[in-house]
Amino acid sequence: MSDEVSREDGHRTFGLMELAVRPMWRGNGITRRLHGTLLGALDAERVLLDVHPASEAARAAYRSWGYRKVGEAIPWDGAALHDVLILDLGRAPTRDGMPRS
């Protein structure tokens, strides 16, 4: 990952883990609405998440929502290699670097 992608200031990035919907509820737009509601409440420049490469449905959804792959990582001890994705929210920080209120 480039230095610019990995640069962090404590406010720049929101980390999202384990956004999931039970199989019987999939295909109804629930995950998309949850994701949209969560992002609407954020005051960050971007969202970072890890997704298992075998999770094709999740990867396809994230791509359709604008996420792009920026690298790979093992998110915890014993985990498989995951794709690291970023979604740029287009929200520039304030001049002092603090999040907008």
Rank of each mutant, 00 (worst) to 15 (best):
T13K: 13
V51D: 06
V21N: 05
P53Y: 06
A92L: 14
S101R: 14
G71S: 05
R7E: 06
I86F: 07
T94E: 12
R12T: 05
R63M: 02
T37N: 00
L42C: 04
A57V: 07
L48K: 11
Y62Q: 00
D83R: 03
V5W: 04
L89C: 03
D9W: 04
D9L: 07
S2M: 00
E45W: 11
E72D: 12
E8F: 11
A57M: 04
L85C: 02
F14D: 06
L48C: 09
R100F: 06
S101T: 08
S6D: 10
M24K: 12
G97L: 07
L39T: 13
A60P: 00
M24I: 06
D96P: 10
L89K: 00
G36S: 03
A20H: 07
R95Y: 09
L49A: 05
V51I: 06
M17E: 11
Y67N: 02
G40C: 12
T13H: 07
R22W: 06
P99Y: 12
T94M: 11
E72T: 04
N28T: 04
S6E: 13
H52T: 07
A60I: 03
L49H: 09
G90F: 02
A73Q: 14
R63Q: 04
D88W: 07
Y67S: 03
A41D: 14
A44W: 11
D3K: 06
S6K: 06
G36T: 00
L39S: 04
E72G: 04
A44V: 11
V84H: 04
T94Y: 03
P23G: 09
P99N: 14
L49P: 00
A79C: 09
R22D: 14
H52Y: 08
M1R: 07
D43M: 11
H82G: 06
A44K: 12
R95C: 03
S6H: 02
